[in-house]
Structure formats: structure tokens, C-alpha cells
């Protein structure tokens, strides 16, 4: 299990891996938003956390289609299916590795991007925390869709279309937790706890669905 985790992590950061590309995409999305809405620093500071969340959501979706596709192409997937360890656990470990390569690096890059958007220290901290706690849910729910579309030649776009409606709760509670931490009337803890609960729920649902989909590819 640990070796699978490390292997996936190493692959993600290698030349063709999705980890760094996702990070670059995140950077690019955040960089073009001021061009779209104008360089007003006050406005940017107000909507900055939301921009970071939307950018992270899109960047997390970007790499999802590679979650199982490379394994399917080189036949590793068949080996993984034949393991004695339950497929659900294997999928879960793969999701964790994918999250460490995408979601975690996105959350860690928030301090630099936050400066670009004129965020102050509490806002940066809150966004980092909610992103770090919210992106696992995105990866886990995405695993289900990635497994469903793994057999398709151009599944990437379809994965995004399938995942986005399911990812809306994560976005809502992530953003409202961030705003709850910053603005006085709104509360931080309830949406944050719901965000964590969503993680746990998707940690069950996503791998289950992904394992069922991968199994159904075999016969």
C-alpha cells in the first residue's frame, strides 16, 4: 500500500505527470481572473477566496482523467485488479496519492497566489485550511467518474462534466467556511464540519463506485 502510494506520487511529479501541470493551470486561472474583472484590489480581496476555490476545483478536475487511464494503458490496472487487497482500498490509496500531488500542492501554493489577489494573512490561512480539507472530497468523488470514463478515448472532458454537479456541495461549504472564518456574522465551524463530513462520505462512495466500475470493465 505504501509503495503504491509512493509510486503514484513519484509518477505524478515526473515529467509527464499531472501534478505540476495542475499547479500551473491553477496559477494561470488565478492570473487571468484580474484581467476579466479588472485590477480593483478591494474587489479582488473580497472575492479572492472564492476565486482560489474555483481555480482549485478546476485544477483538481483537470488531472482526474489520468487517475486510472495510464494504468489501464500499460496494463498495471489488470495487476491491481488481481491483488488480494480489496480493490476499494487500492482505489482509496491511489486517490490519496493523487490528492497529495494535486490538492495538497494547490493548498500549499495558496500563500503565493493569495498575495497576488491582495488577501491578508487570515484570509490566506482560512483558504489554505479549507482547500486542504476540501480537495480530498473532490478527488474521491472524481475517482468514481474517472473509473466510469476510463475506457473512453477522450474521457477527460466527460469527467469534468460528470464531476462538476457532484462537486457543488464541496464548493459551497468550502467557500462558506472560508467566509465564515473571515466575516463576523457568518459562522465557521458548521460549514467546516460539514465539509469534513463530505470528505468521509465521499471516502466511502467514491472508491466503492470506482471499484465497481473498474470491475465491470473486466468482464
Amino acid at each position: 500500500m505504501r509503495r503504491l502510494f509512493l509510486r503514484d506520487l513519484a509518477l505524478a511529479f515526473r515529467a509527464g505527470g499531472g501534478g505540476l501541470t495542475g499547479l500551473l493551470f491553477f496559477l494561470a486561472v488565478v492570473a487571468i481572473v484580474p484581467f476579466g474583472i479588472g485590477p480593483d484590489l478591494k474587489l479582488l480581496a473580497r472575492i479572492g477566496p472564492s476565486i482560489l476555490w474555483i481555480g482549485a476545483l478546476l485544477a483538481a478536475l483537470l488531472g482526474l482523467d489520468r487517475l486510472f487511464q495510464a494504468e489501464r494503458e500499460d496494463g498495471t490496472l489488470d495487476l491491481l485488479l488481481m491483488q488480494e487487497t480489496p480493490l476499494v482500498l487500492i482505489v482509496l490509496v491511489k486517490c490519496l496519492a493523487h490528492w497529495a500531488a494535486s490538492g495538497l500542492t494547490l493548498a500549499l501554493s495558496v500563500p503565493f497566489l493569495g498575495l497576488l489577489l491582495n488577501l491578508d494573512a487570515p484570509a490566506i490561512g482560512a483558504t489554505m485550511l479549507t482547500l486542504a480539507c476540501g480537495t480530498p472530497a473532490l478527488t474521491l468523488i472524481g475517482a468514481g467518474a474517472a473509473a466510469v470514463t476510463v475506457a473512453l478515448p477522450r474521457g477527460g472532458l466527460l469527467v469534468s462534466v460528470l464531476v462538476l454537479p457532484l462537486a457543488i456541495p464541496v464548493l459551497i461549504f468550502g467557500v462558506s467556511a472560508t467566509q465564515g472564518a473571515l466575516e463576523a456574522p457568518a459562522s465557521f465551524l458548521p460549514p467546516f464540519l460539514i465539509l469534513l463530513a463530505l470528505n468521509l462520505l465521499f471516502a466511502v462512495l467514491g472508491p466503492l463506485a470506482a471499484a465497481a466500475a473498474l470491475r465491470s470493465l473486466e468482464d
Binding site: G144, P165, L166, I168, P169, A209, A212, S216
Partner: peptide, 15 residues
């Protein structure tokens, strides 16, 4: 698509 339908069905109340 059955897997996806059920995944969506569980998610509808949450959404």
C-alpha cells in the same frame, strides 16, 4: 451508467 445514476441519487439530497 447504473453506477453513475446511483452515485447521483445518493448525492441529490446533499446537493
Amino acid at each position: 451508467s447504473a453506477i453513475l445514476i446511483l452515485l447521483g441519487f445518493v448525492n441529490i439530497p446533499i446537493i
